[in-house]
């Protein structure tokens, strides 16, 4: 089966006065139809920039996207013109952002905003578009959707707004949904609601999801495969079960150990990762994690390990995995 999306050797750089910031550094990944892929990493790991680069949403300059190709159903996104891009964005691939407060336009009703996107991408008439909007609001669990369609974004709470965003994102039956930290700004009980909702709807519509998050717990509960990013590179890629059962890359291992868990034993001391992530302006020569890695050898400081298969279905960019 062909992949839905295949990213080959994506590199995104930002040209600043201080120098070139290598935000994404030779990323390869793919998503199959209907699957949920998690991309985890801390701030500055390049996870969001990867998503924005895929949809070519970054202003160039200062950004520059190079790479072999971003294949979406045999179509190279890097070669599309503006018009083709617009048709792709919001139509076949849609996106949900972190901040539900700013991603809706405050001067239009939510119904109008859903209908607009539907009319643009699905060639529906005004009436059908409105019906579709009501239908979607209903699906994302907004009570009395037919009435709420005439409400403005400020009349919704944060969680409700994120529901509206999901309604907009799914209204055109996209094949891929890119969700960039969709629940980070929400409270835990609301986060649980939204994650359940996304899980249910994407399953129903058979939508592939790229779930970008910093929360290992969210990844564990909502994804089938995971890609771990660090300092602009993919350090590990595996099925979710594999990754949590037996993390291969030293960073993944250390990260999992450092997170306080609800089911920790009492009095357990956290094992933090010492130091800071590297400066993207001055990436080290070798493995980006070498300076903080407990197992690092001379080799790690000199050359960058390639992403290699360490066991079936699990890839790690580490000279000394497990």
């Amino acid at each position: 089966m062909p992949h839905l999306l295949e990213v080959a050797n994506l590199t995104t750089e930002f040209h600043t006065r201080a120098g070139i910031v290598k935000a994404v550094n030779g990323v390869n990944l793919f998503i199959d139809p209907g699957e949920t892929l998690g991309i985890v990493g801390e701030s500055g790991s390049g996870k969001s920039v990867t998503a924005l680069s895929i949809l070519r949403l970054l202003p160039t300059p200062p950004a520059s996207i190079t790479g072999n190709q971003i294949l979406y159903q045999n179509q190279d996104i890097l070669k599309l013109n503006e018009k083709q891009l617009r048709a792709l964005r919001g139509g076949k691939i849609s996106m949900i952002f972190q901040d539900p407060m700013t991603s809706l336009n405050p001067v239009y009703t939510v119904g109008f905003q859903i209908a607009e996107s539907v009319r643009l991408h699905m060639n529906l008439g005004r009436k059908e578009a409105i019906d579709r909007a009501i239908d979607m609001l209903d699906k994302v669990g907004i009570p009395s959707a037919a009435k709420r369609i005439n409400s403005y974004p400020h009349e919704f709470s944060g969680g409700m707004r994120q529901r509206v965003m999901i309604a907009i994102a799914l209204s055109c039956n996209p094949e891929l949904l890119i969700a960039d930290e969709p629940t980070t700004a929400l409270d835990v009980t609301i986060q649980a609601q939204i994650l359940e909702l996304m899980k249910g709807l994407t399953h129903e519509f058979h939508t592939a999801v790229m779930l970008i998050t910093h929360d290992m717990g969210v990844v564990a509960g909502s994804t089938q495969r995971v890609v771990v990013m660090y300092a602009g590179s993919i350090v590990e890629s595996a099925t979710t079960t594999q990754l949590f059962a037996m993390p291969a890359h030293q960073y993944t291992k250390a990260l999992l150990r450092s997170i306080p868990r609800l089911d920790d034993e009492d009095g357990k001391r956290l094992e933090p990762i010492t130091g800071q992530p590297p400066d993207l302006l001055h990436l080290p020569k070798g493995c980006p994690f070498a300076a903080r890695c407990p197992k690092a050898q001379q080799q790690c400081k000199e050359s960058v390990p390639a992403l290699t298969e360490v066991q079936p279905g699990q890839f790690a960019a580490c000279f000394y995995p497990f």
């Binding site: 933090p272 010492t274 130091g275 800071q276 400066d279 300076a291």
Partner: peptide
């Protein structure tokens, strides 16, 4: 405790 490395 956990002295920061001299990155600066």
């Amino acid at each position: 405790l956990e002295m920061e490395p001299d990155i600066l």
